[in-house]
Each structure stands twice: as C-alpha cells, then as structure tokens.
C-alpha cells in the first residue's frame, strides 16, 4: 500500500471513524466539526490620521525610516532617500514618476524580463509600492501590482517602499481580507515588518542579516482626502534617517 493511502487510513482510524473508505481513500466525516468562535476584532474605526500615526510609530520601533508626503512631494522624497544609490531597480509596472527625480540609472524588472540575480545583488536600492499595510504591526504586504517579483525586494540592501495612506488598515485580519479582495490569495506574498533582523544571539534584536538592511517607508497622503489632510502637522514624521 502506498504512503498516502496508509496515512489517510491511519488518520481515519485514529479519529475513530467507521464505515467505508471513499474514493479519496479515507472514511468521510459524519460528526459535525467543532465550531470556531470569531469574537476577535476584524474591523477598525480609527481615522486615517490615527492609522498613519500608529504605523509610523511601529516602523520607527523596528528602526525603519518613515516619511510622510503628499503625492506632489513623493518624487523628491524618493530621490532624497536614494542619494547613496548609483542605480536602482523597480518593478516594470511601477509609476515611473515616483522615481522621476532620481538622477542615477533605473533598471526595470518583471516576470517576463527578469534581472539576473548578480545585477540585483549589485544594485544600490529597490523602489516598490505595496498592496496593503498593517498599522498595528508595522507591516507592509507585498504582492501583485507595483510590488515586483519577490527577489527584487530581497537581494538589494536598501528598500524604499511607497504606501498609500488609503491602503493602511489597523489590524492583521483586515489586511488578510484586503489581499483576498485583491485576488491575491494564491499569488506569492511577502510581509515585511522593518528591515532584516535577528534575535539569535542572547535574544538581542540586531538589524541586518540577509534581507535589506535599510527600509524606508514613504506614506503618501492624497491631498483630496479631507480627513487625512486635517492633522498633517501632528503626524509629520521627522526625517526618516533620524530613527535609523
């Protein structure tokens, strides 16, 4: 008997199921499965302004850089964050205007025309968008449009990630729902919370092992959103370098 059949039969037996094996090779369930309570939070009533504040606080806690800008200010901010890079890589579907003020060479990458890994290893930085971001945990979720292949946000040592304020949610279940709504359930996903880090030596968190050692998150607040516009002053973050 093959391993699959044996394991499925063992499970049926261990669960005390009796009756005939079905075509798949197990005895089907007859008793109802246990109920799963869903009393945990799945929604949030926080304002965009408050979400930005929390998100920025969490990122700073991870030693990531945080900048908050209007759409008009974005290209200049991105260029300033990239001032140590001679060349950068971006996903082919990224809005070119975001890196319009960067003076160096811009390489594009896509599934169809991927950059060799040696090139990615030598490039100064990567700029991407994000699908959604979780304020409570300081997490950016990279999957689908504007996020690129997984490797481009991994091999370069500096990642500049642009997050639209409207894409920030408060808690993890909301982000999981957003990713599903965007049809990305089976697409490759990377969730990043701060730069690469380890606690393996005496449980002391140190930044920088194998992933990008520098992460800058640029939060773009749409000027047309009245609520988000309200307290720009309060949430304006210091220069992202300060927290690094």
């Amino acid at each position: 008997m093959d391993a699959r059949s044996v394991i499925l039969e063992r499970i049926s037996s261990s669960l005390g199921r009796t009756g005939r094996l079905n075509a798949e090779g197990y005895v089907p369930i007859t008793a109802p499965a246990p109920e799963v309570p869903h009393a945990y939070r799945t929604a949030s009533d926080l304002s965009t302004e408050r979400l930005i504040e929390i998100f920025a606080d969490r990122l700073a806690d991870y030693n990531a850089g945080v900048a908050r800008v209007s759409a008009a200010e974005l290209p200049a901010t991105v260029a300033r964050l990239l001032d140590e890079a001679d060349d950068i890589v971006i996903p082919a579907d990224l809005d070119r205007a975001w890196v319009g003020e960067f003076a160096g060479r811009v390489l594009t990458d896509s599934r169809e025309e991927p950059q060799p890994v040696d090139v990615l290893n030598a490039v100064g930085a990567v700029v991407t968008g994000s699908t959604t971001a979780i304020a409570d945990t300081g997490t950016i979720c990279l999957s689908g449009p504007h996020c690129g292949r997984r490797v481009i946000t991994l091999v370069p040592d500096h990642h500049v990630c642009v997050v639209r304020a409207a894409d920030i949610v408060e808690i993890v279940p909301q982000a999981v729902a957003r990713l599903q709504e965007a049809g990305l359930s089976t697409a490759p996903q990377t969730w990043a919370s701060g730069p690469s880090a380890t606690v393996d030596i005496e449980f002391e968190r140190v930044a920088g092992v194998h992933g990008p050692r520098r992460l800058d998150v640029v939060i773009v607040v749409d000027e047309d959103e009245p609520e988000a516009h309200a307290g720009t002053q309060a949430a304006a973050q210091a220069d992202p370098r300060d927290s690094a």
């Binding site: 697409a187 490759p188 990377t190 990043a192 919370s193 730069p195």
Partner: peptide, 21 residues
C-alpha cells in the same frame, strides 16, 4: 514566539508562479 508585534518577514507561496521563485 519572539514577543514582537510581527516578525520581520513572512513568505507565502502557492505551488509555482512562473517567473517568480
């Protein structure tokens, strides 16, 4: 596990994605 709000990296993949991984 690590007492963090979120671990630095989580990867999710479903079978093969041509051109990515």
């Amino acid at each position: 596990s690590t007492g963090e709000r979120m671990n630095p990296y989580s990867s999710f993949w479903t079978g093969v994605t041509p051109g990515d991984g």
